[in-house]
Nucleic acid binder design. Structure first.
Lengths: 241, 241
DNA sequence: TTTTACATGTCGGCT
DNA sequence: AGCCGACGTGTAAAA
């Protein structure tokens, strides 16, 4: 693997050198005994333990424990100050300006460190809400038979409406689309768009489009004069739970 | 570091052996050239590139690129099937049952692999919404002067009310608390709790408590007969942006 | 910069 | 299992 720049057990003094040398030039992956403290929007402390520390090329810092998808602590695209505290300890201080946050990792003893260049290619993702909007905008009759597309992604003071239609009787239809089971928040999102247009004096009603809906949300829609239309994009239909 | 079980460059055949041996027994960290495909709630493809693959002790699989806090692909607590496809390729297939999702990582050539035991200690986090609720429940006069606590964490069909108070004139007060700047969703959350109690015939009004509020949300509250009370917990006041 | 919404969100808790 | 809400959510797009 030509992308590996270096790897091995590294003592505190060398660690400082390595991190200073490669920060924002390569990705640094470390297995270290460390304690972690964070303060900012909230604050946290993690006792000394063995953890996986990742410092990415863009300045992202992640500290992972043995369980869970989410890191114990993290810092997106931070600046980083590395210094040796004493013979056996190194402090990594990752700071973000807005919001003002500070992550301090205190590394004890030697670490297993990999310095490597990772690829930055993104991935092609299908099945986003936007893809479904695209499908439905092309054929709005799937939502309301005989309706025509008026607009997409319409801004209001209370957020962006996914799709606006005109039905066969000439009424405006506000459509909110969800890629997964619709919940109460989706209903209220729709509700506030509809309310906005009604206050403007328009004759409008709202439709929530989703592959599924919670029973409570369905009741909520009914109580507020809103409609539900089931729609699953074909491409992901088979994988619905 | 006694927690390191093994580390080094590993060929395809050895990789299969290593992963089978240590899956769910230790954390496996790999730097590999790989392509990744995912299908489930959505679907994605990532071209061959060098990436960081983490297989945690609990079955979590993460695939990181060079940028961003979030992994390119992932699978929480999955089962994993590893097999050698041909002389130079290994396929890691991580499957989750519900929702039905499949992540396939195709590893090309040799990988740099670390097998290690990480700590599972959690972290102590201060400044959660719950901490603020605790503070205010102890002294509800900070929200409404002269009010008394009726209940905390009250379940309704439309979600959990943070705090219920009775004010000095005997009226019920539904309180929704946010740890950060309140947005329109917070206002609507409060609104639906208040609406629920009003429909039950109770004399009730709603208060949104937060350290800050967006101007549009403040207008929305006014339009719907809801109130805003500013409150910053002392402990995190200094770190507000 | 502010504001809003999406996300394969993940995760926890309660009914 | 369904459902709701918090999260240091992160991230992108639009005003």
């Amino acid at each position: 693997l030509k992308e590996i720049i270096s790897s091995g057990i590294v003592k505190p003094a060398e660690l400082v050198e390595l991190v200073n040398r490669w920060f924002r030039r390569a990705t640094i992956v470390m297995v270290s005994r460390c304690s972690v403290s964070y303060s900012g929007r909230a604050s946290s402390i993690a006792r000394e333990s063995t953890r996986l520390i990742i410092i990415k090329q863009d300045g992202t810092v992640l500290v992972h424990g043995s369980v869970g998808s989410n890191p114990l602590n993290w810092q997106p695209r931070s600046s980083l100050i590395t210094k040796q505290v004493n013979e056996s300890e190194v402090e990594l201080r990752a700071v973000r300006v807005s919001p003002k946050e500070e992550l301090v990792i205190r590394v004890m003893g030697s670490s297993l460190v990999i310095v490597t260049e990772l690829g930055d290619e993104g991935l092609t993702l299908y099945g986003k809400e936007e893809d479904i909007i695209e499908e439905l905008a092309r054929n709005p009759s799937q939502i309301i038979g005989g309706s025509t597309l008026i607009a997409r992604e319409v801004s209001t003071p209370y957020g962006r409406v996914d799709i606006m239609l005109r039905d066969s009787s000439g009424r405006l239809v506000v459509v909110e689309i969800k890629r997964a089971r619709a919940d109460i928040e989706a209903a209220q999102q729709l509700q506030r768009y509809v309310e906005y247009y009604k206050r403007l004096g328009l004759d409008v009603y709202g439709v929530l489009v989703a592959p599924d809906i919670s029973s409570i949300t369905l009741k909520y829609l009914g109580d507020h004069g809103l409609k539900y239309v089931r729609y699953s994009p074909k491409a992901i239909e088979s994988s619905q739970k």
